[in-house]
Every structure is written in structure tokens, then in C-alpha cells.
Write a protein that binds this DNA or RNA. Structure first.
Length: 531
RNA sequence: GGGCCCGUAGCGCAGUCUGGCCAGCGCACCGGCCUUUUAAGCCGGGUGUCGCGGGUUCGAAUCCCGCCGGGCCCGCCA
């Protein structure tokens, strides 16, 4: 059974209706590592619904948290200086570097939130700032303040230095300097919390002493208390979260105790997950080691990211590399798709079931009724470099048997892939996979051809003008010609590449040459010979 | 100091919850396809002390204990 279904089953044992929460701090660009969170939440939502339960998934922007570090790219150049003064302020109150966006939060989160739909993720979006400012959190804040002593005890169980006696689980926003990280609450009365703006290790305080009305969202609960309060507020029954929270004595542990003892609420079913690294490096929005959802869509189908997340267990570390390893991801996805449609067999029935389930979870929409035919991405990466013309590409795909009697949908999917392949080649493909069919004879390169190589090209040109060749036949011709004129096939391969690309290697000759215009190739070979 | 994950074929991994057709997948590799395959060839092939040592069991990659190696997270910010 897939782990998502196991979670769903555990949830359904507890009840029929579920709220699965996800969310993150808006500490910079939201990357595919963060998206793990929402994707898992949404996957569970789907699984619960499929098993007859009711479920909603939500995504909560922690946009009322303070900015602790200036994120990339604002930590570069002139921005860095300009943004320093916002350190310690709630993200929501920080301006956008780009006037196109309303503020910092929108600047960093809009494209992410907007992309979710493309990935088939259906979540209700919440903003922490809005919730606090609407007053919805007031009752819970009050409960927390009333029970500050009890909460302190719970937290102290895991602390080496106990919290001070006058500690309150509240972070006020300084009415004078606007910072939230710098204040220390020391008393409360009615609807206000008294604070002093003392500063913190990354932001200076202004020394102001004031009162913060928590019923208007002039401050927020401190994280370890806010989390359980939020569970209660939104009725959260399940939540995936990064392994940092999952640590013993971490915020989930304390959150569970606080939820139970203070808010009289059972903590949500936890689903801890591992991080996603990027080319072996930890993704980090502050350092700019990011790969975002829109970037993903430039080079790969949304299903592929879902597949990437759901193919292995949540606590399994994943590494994403948009270079060569992306090709394997494509191939694997195409493989399980064929398994899904029983067009490919898998030895173990158990595994086959697993593949089918992973495939379903990877889909953005309902499963297609008819089997899907895919243009292999590796081939798309060659094809897109041979022709820019989509009609021509379709002709090649159909006439060369790459797609057998494709449906309209197959063609549409192939064209989308072709466009993505084009982006991939230009942005992420290693140099050796890139080529350009030269419009003119590459004189320099062709001068290096030996007489034998020229003879080979001449023969090849004659053959091509005499009849049609399939890619395989063409490939075989290289060997046959080589043999008949005592030229090593590899030399003839090189000659072909030199004449067309001006270099010594390229895509498989049979496929490559057969997708090119025949007259063009013949002419090119003859020109090369006669040079 | 605490917590988690990983260790299965050359590489990347699934399988571990619920012990028994679980020794498997992809790529790579090897052999053959006319002593021909550079980047969609075709067919065939598993190349393995399931990290190590104990234990439980009729039976262990799977459960328990210990150890070794690699990685990550938390240490009071979230």
C-alpha cells in the first residue's frame, strides 16, 4: 500500500472529515522543496476522498513571521542595503522590490500559489497576517496568555535554560519601529499586551515601550504556541511538516502537548518529510539555491513533479537535478504510465499495483481512459533542435513511427513536450547534447575530412538520392559503406557530423539524418566533398 | 546531548509497516542480431554475503538487540 493511502486509512480510522494543513514561511522564493509540503497535503486529501471520507487541504502562508535574513536576490547589490532596515519586521509589512507586486509576500509567493492549480493541487489558501488582523485568533491568544505559566512549563521540559517567569507566548509588533522580532512581552491585561522593543540578535530594537492589542492582530503568538492554536482554529486533523519540526522535543512535540493541555485539542496526524536538495545542495531560499514551480513547468510536465514526490517515501531524502537526471525521471514516468495501461509488464504483481497507484497520484486530473502515447523526451531533445516548425515535427513523429497512429491528444502532448525539450536544451542540457544544424557548409571543419571520408559522404549522398531510408537502414548504410571502401564506420560518423554540425559527434545518425530535409543533406554532403 | 533517514546489482532505487513466489525495477554492463550501432535500434542475459554480528522463528532484506559506515535535523528562531 502506498504511504499516502496508509495515512488516509489512519485518518479514516479517526473520523470521516479531515482538514489537512500545509504551509510555509515566506522567507524568499518558494521552491520545489517547499512544495513537498502542499503536494503531500493535497495527495492525502485525494486519498481520503477516494476512500470515502471528506477532506480539504489548506496552505497557510506564514507571512506574519519576522524576516530573519534578507533572502536572495534581495541580499545582492543595492537591495541588500535597502532591505536591512526591514530585518525583524513581519514579511507582510515589507515592500516588494518590484512595483508589479503589492508587497514582499506577494512578490515571493504569487507565482507559487498561482502555479498550484497547474499541478493539480487544490488547497484553500490562508494568510497568517489576515487571520490575526481579522481577530479570528483573539480567543486563542487570550487562552494562551491566561495559561502562559502552564505553557512555559511544557516548553521548559525541553529547554536547558528555562523561560523567565514573566514570559508570555506573544510577539508584539512594535508600534514605533514596526518590528516583531525585537519586542519582549512582559505583562498583559484585557486585550493588550505590554512590551518593550529590546532588539534581537539580528535586528536592533528601538527601545519603545508600548501596548499591543492582540484582538486587532498587533502581534502574534510565538511559533510553538501558534502552531497548536492554528490547529484548533482551523480544525486541522493532519499535517505534513519538515523533519526539523519532527525532532523529539521539537515544535510538533510541544505543539501536541499544548494543543491537548491548553486548547483541549488532539494534535493532527503528523506526516514528517525529508528535504529536497538541488544538485546535492540543500535548497535554500535565502541563499538562492532554488528551483521553483514555474521553472519546473518550463522543462517538465506537472505530473513529473508529483511523480518525483510520490514515488518514494516521504522521509526519503530526494535530490533534484534538472540536468541529465531529468531524462531518467521522464523515462521512469513514461514507464509507469505504460504499466498503468497494461502495455508493459512488471514481474511482481505487488510492484505493479504500486506503480499504478503512484501513477494515479502523479496525475493532475482524472486518469485518461485511453492509453497515452508519449514522445520520449530524449528524442524530443533531438527533434527540437532539428526543427522549429511544429507541423514539421508532427510529420516527422508520425512518419518515422515514433508515434503510431497518434490521437489528437497524443500530438498535443508531444508538442508540449517538444516545447519543454527546447527549453531544457537551452537551459539545462549538457553541452554535448546541444547542436545546431549549420545553414552553411562549415568550411573549417570540412577541410579536416580525409579523402576516404569524402568518398563515404559522396556514397551516402548517392544512396540518399536513390531511395528512402528508414532511420535503421540509414544507420546500417554507414557500416556498409565503411566496409566497402575500407573506412572505419566511426570515421564516417564523424564525417557526417562534421558536414552537418561542424563537430565530431552528434545524435544517432539514422534518426538524426532522417529527420532532416533529404535534399538539404544530399546537397550538404556533396558540397563538403567538393570543397 | 537528543532525534531522524540511508546502507539491497557498477550507479540510482523499490521491497521493510503486515516475515513465506521479495531477490526486484530503471540506467549501465555483457552476449547475439551480416566479425555494424555515438544521443528512441532489436533480442537475450542478473552480474547480489540485501552493511556487520547476535537473537526470535519451521522460515528474516523484512521483527528484536548491539555495532560499523554515510547523511541530515534540532539544541531552545521558526
Amino acid at each position: 500500500m502506498h504511504w499516502i493511502d496508509r495515512v488516509a486509512r489512519a485518518l479514516l480510522k479517526r473520523g470521516k472529515k479531515h482538514v489537512i494543513a500545509s504551509g510555509i514561511s515566506i522567507s524568499g522564493h518558494i521552491h520545489v522543496g517547499h512544495s513537498n509540503d502542499v503536494f503531500i497535503a493535497d495527495g492525502i486529501r485525494r486519498a481520503v476522498e477516494e476512500s470515502g471520507g471528506k477532506a480539504t487541504a489548506l496552505w497557510y502562508a506564514d507571512d506574519y513571521d519576522p524576516m530573519r535574513r534578507i533572502p536572495w536576490p534581495l541580499n545582492q547589490g543595492e537591495h541588500a542595503e535597502r532591505y536591512r532596515k526591514y530585518l525583524g519586521m513581519p514579511y507582510i509589512d515589507i515592500p516588494s522590490p518590484d512595483p508589479e507586486y503589492e508587497n514582499f509576500v506577494e512578490y515571493f509567493s504569487k507565482s507559487f500559489v498561482d502555479s498550484l492549480r497547474d499541478f493539480g493541487v487544490k488547497v484553500k489558501v490562508y494568510s497568517g497576517a489576515k487571520i490575526y488582523r481579522s481577530g479570528k485568533m483573539s480567543r486563542l491568544v487570550k487562552t494562551a496568555l491566561e495559561n502562559a505559566g502552564e505553557i512555559r512549563k511544557i516548553l521548559n521540559r525541553y529547554r536547558s535554560t528555562p523561560l523567565p517567569d514573566d514570559w508570555l507566548p506573544y510577539d508584539a509588533i512594535c508600534e514605533k519601529c514596526g518590528k516583531i522580532a525585537t519586542t519582549k512581552a512582559f505583562a498583559w491585561d484585557g486585550s493588550v499586551v505590554k512590551y518593550r522593543c529590546e532588539g534581537c540578535d539580528y535586528a536592533p530594537g528601538c527601545g519603545h515601550e508600548g501596548e499591543s492589542d492582540y484582538t486587532n492582530g498587533e502581534g502574534k503568538l510565538t511559533w510553538r504556541v501558534e502552531w497548536p492554536a492554528r490547529w484548533k482554529l482551523l480544525g486541522v486533523t493532519c499535517e505534513p511538516f519538515g523533519k526539523d519540526h519532527a525532532v523529539a522535543g521539537g515544535s510538533y512535540d510541544t505543539g501536541r502537548s499544548i494543543a491537548k493541555r491548553i486548547f483541549n485539542y488532539d494534535a493532527p496526524y503528523p506526516v514528517p518529510y525529508e528535504w529536497v536538495s538541488f544538485r546535492g545542495d540543500r535548497m535554500s531560499s535565502s541563499r538562492g539555491v532554488v528551483f521553483t514551480l514555474p521553472q519546473w513547468l518550463e522543462i517538465a510536465e506537472p505530473e513529473l513533479l508529483r511523480y518525483f514526490i510520490f514515488r518514494s517515501k516521504s522521509m526519503k531524502a530526494k535530490d533534484f537535478d534538472p540536468g541529465l537526471p531529468l531524462l531518467d525521471l521522464y523515462d521512469e514516468f513514461d514507464m509507469i504510465e505504460q504499466v498503468y495501461f497494461d502495455r508493459r509488464d512488471v514481474a511482481e504483481p505487488k510492484r505493479k499495483k504500486q506503480y499504478k497507484r503512484i501513477y494515479e497520484l502523479s496525475l493532475v486530473g482524472p486518469p485518461p481512459i485511453r492509453p497515452v502515447q508519449r514522445l520520449p523526451f530524449r528524442f524530443a531533445a533531438v527533434l527540437c533542435q532539428v526543427t522549429q516548425d511544429e507541423q514539421h515535427a508532427i510529420e516527422i513523429m508520425t512518419s518515422k513511427g515514433i508515434l503510431a497512429k497518434p490521437s489528437g491528444r497524443d500530438i498535443r502532448l508531444a508538442l508540449i513536450r517538444l516545447r519543454r525539450a527546447r527549453n531544457w536544451v537551452s537551459k539545462y542540457a549538457p553541452e554535448r547534447l546541444r547542436f545546431r544544424v549549420l545553414k552553411e557548409v562549415p568550411v573549417e571543419a570540412v577541410r579536416r575530412l580525409t579523402e576516404k571520408q569524402k568518398e563515404g559522404l559522396a556514397r551516402l549522398a548517392d544512396d540518399l538520392s536513390s531511395r528512402d531510408y528508414t532511420p535503421v537502414e540509414l544507420h546500417n548504410r554507414i557500416y556498409e559503406i565503411g566496409k566497402s571502401i575500407e573506412l572505419k564506420p566511426s570515421e564516417l560518423f564523424k564525417a557526417v557530423y562534421l558536414a552537418l554540425l561542424g563537430r565530431e559527434s552528434g545524435p544517432r545518425v539514422g534518426n538524426f539524418v532522417s529527420v532532416l530535409d533529404r535534399e538539404f543533406v544530399i546537397g550538404r554532403f556533396r558540397d563538403a566533398v567538393n570543397l
